[in-house]
Design a protein around this nucleic acid. Structure first.
Lengths: 224, 224, 224, 224
DNA sequence: CATGAATGAGGGTTCATTCAT
DNA sequence: GATGAATGAACCCTCATTCAT
């Protein structure tokens, strides 16, 4: 029987995802399109091409779907971070680092479209209970580690605040970076990098990331 | 008798308006705490200390409550902008301007805690949805005018992008500035100012707003 | 106090009806216009120019209003019957009798517009409980007496059936006789008389009531 | 497996349709018993032996239930008319024709007990309301055609009036023909035929329909 | 395991009725 | 008595969840 399952998995993998993953993919798409609350279980089941009842063979309830989706996203994010936060990347100049960092995160969010919806849902209220708190905690920890690696002298309290703020800033611009015409999306990604670069490195007037738009106007003649 | 009725009405009218305001306040609190959708009319009524049916003596339906709340908020916001965007304030150095600007907007959002939730709520049906879109457009227009006054040389397209991005950044940090311990909230307000200051004036190393925390760590020895 | 009430009644009567009667009149109008169910107590109160609470000073509940209205109508109907069913009228030839009878009943229904609505409401279901059964019973008794006077040889069972059927026929055409252009209404009243005349006097080919239209076409050449 | 699904669907489809019919039957019964407005969805569901939510698997809302019921009734009525109004039946002597006509319509209304309630219901909102108006118009058209076939010399205006009046008369007696002890119902059906026969053929003293009771009393000695 | 009809608690809303003023 | 804001049960409908097949 175990062998049977193995074989089935082996056969299924090529022509698609496993049932569970199909459901999660459907859920992610719907979370992104209509939000967590409006993504009814029937809608998710239909999108996944299964019956409503089948959902509950894999997940005990709707929140568990979100939880599993968040977990899958977190796992993937883990892999992204493993790449991004390698010593070599961390050692890059900040503009280059941001290029890599932001591009990777935007790409990740394109692959997990529901991640943003869940994050924002939990921003407003707490429909998913602790599931998303976990998710956020994981991300915050990563950012914290990143900051520690980059700015070892920074006090931990401040580091945490900056991490939280940075996370929010990123989320704030992410929707603009995922929808709309390609040109606009690229411009927004540039602004994301600019915002974070300037937020992280306030005292330098140095080069922004390569594809960062020259967003600063000539400084007005403010005397300060 | 006519006089009697007059007096009674005089005493009643305020009571009716008071109730209306109580309901709106309750709604605002709940919008902020659980979001528009989860703020059930029964919940709002309970929070306002009235029965479910009483709501409908003042508002024809749930959406109308949100609408009235948004309208009251918008009216107040208008007044805030009238103060903030006076020629004298606009002429202030950017740090001082941001002090006034952000403090006023944060205070406004503290007074109208549900305003943010409504601004973000995507699941509101068309009539109110459109009203909120208008409202957003109004804010964007204000920001655009502000930028134009401050940086007349900036191309309008860029100005609009920056306005949109700034609006999003502000919204993203706002929840952090409204909840949690007082110390943390203040710290976040400082970060808000820092983020916008640096985003708006990237090429100056000048003084950040007065109460802005020294959020920049000593620049790491990045060569750029 | 009793004297006081007397005086008030005396003073009020000239410029309108008593409060109770005003409410009943309002109820009757609304019963006719929107039906018993849709005539909300608030609507009745508003139409009567009193507050919702005042209604309940005169009537214990909505059904009691209908009951009282029906009672008032019945009392008036009683008076109508007292006139109609006088020996002289009963002795009239049937066409003349029907002229008097139908015209009086149509006039009565014009004065008590809600009577029909209540009668029909109770035709469909029994929202008013026994109130309207009483009303119907009273009418049926009258019709029965009428038939007995006119056709003393008719068995009582048949008499009752004919009374019931006649009552229904009358009600069926009444709405048409009360609304629409004057010409149409008159035509309908004519048809009412024709229907009843022919139903009551099947074996005579004699004169229909004076204003009865010549509704019968030349008999087709049916051989029977 | 495909075969399996085929078979299962084959078994299921009827079940779904069965449920739909059960719900419609329950609705029809309740429409007849308490009227459209008082026939709550919970009541209909209970009568059909299902849960409130189940109704909505088959019908989008309460009005749709009435609509479907009316549609089913109309379809059946159409078939009834196709039979009744065949040239052979129309050519029958009036008493025989009325036998067929009334018996068929009464049988139809026994099979669709809610049809009458819907026809009379004035409180139904527009979409269904209009559908029912159409339906009434259809019936009136049928009656008009019937009269034209039978009495070609009759002016069209009078024909329409007689159609309308006849329709009302029929509806007025129908409840009596559907409820109560069997004997009474039969007697009422007899009266229906008598009423219409005499209304339609006033100048003939010929035979009434076969089972028509000898409802006319010996003519009183009225000289006209 | 899959199915999808069935469930029923809960949401927004109405309205007959009550009660503090 | 009069007022009208307040009440809350009940309506129509949705949707997360269950279960017979």
């Amino acid at each position: 029987m175990g062998e049977n399952r193995e074989r089935r998995r082996a056969r299924r993998q090529p022509r698609g995802l496993l049932r569970k993953d199909e459901i999660l993919a459907a859920a992610g798409t719907l979370f992104a399109e209509v939000g967590y609350d409006k993504a009814t279980t029937n809608l998710i089941a239909a999108q996944a091409g299964v019956s409503p009842g089948s959902l509950y063979q894999f997940f005990p309830n709707k929140e568990a779907i979100a939880h599993a989706y968040a977990a899958a996203a977190t796992a993937q994010l883990q892999r992204v971070y493993d790449t991004i936060l390698s010593p070599e990347v961390i050692a890059l100049p900040l503009p280059s680092f941001l290029d890599v960092f932001i591009d990777a995160l935007v790409a990740f969010n394109r692959a997990f479209p529901g991640y943003l919806a869940l994050s924002v849902a939990s921003t407003i209220s707490s429909p998913l209970g602790l599931a998303l708190a976990d998710l956020r905690r994981g991300i915050m920890g990563r950012l914290d580690a990143l900051f520690e690696a980059r700015w070892p002298a920074m006090p931990s309290k401040e580091r945490r605040l900056r991490g939280l703020v940075s996370y929010r800033l990123f989320l704030a611009l992410l929707p603009l970076a995922l929808e709309g015409p390609e040109d606009d999306r690229e411009a927004v990604v540039g602004e994301m990098k600019a915002v974070l670069f300037r937020y992280w490195e306030p005292s330098t007037g140095g080069e922004p990331p390569a594809d960062m738009p020259a967003s600063g106007p000539p400084a007005p003649s403010a005397p300060w």
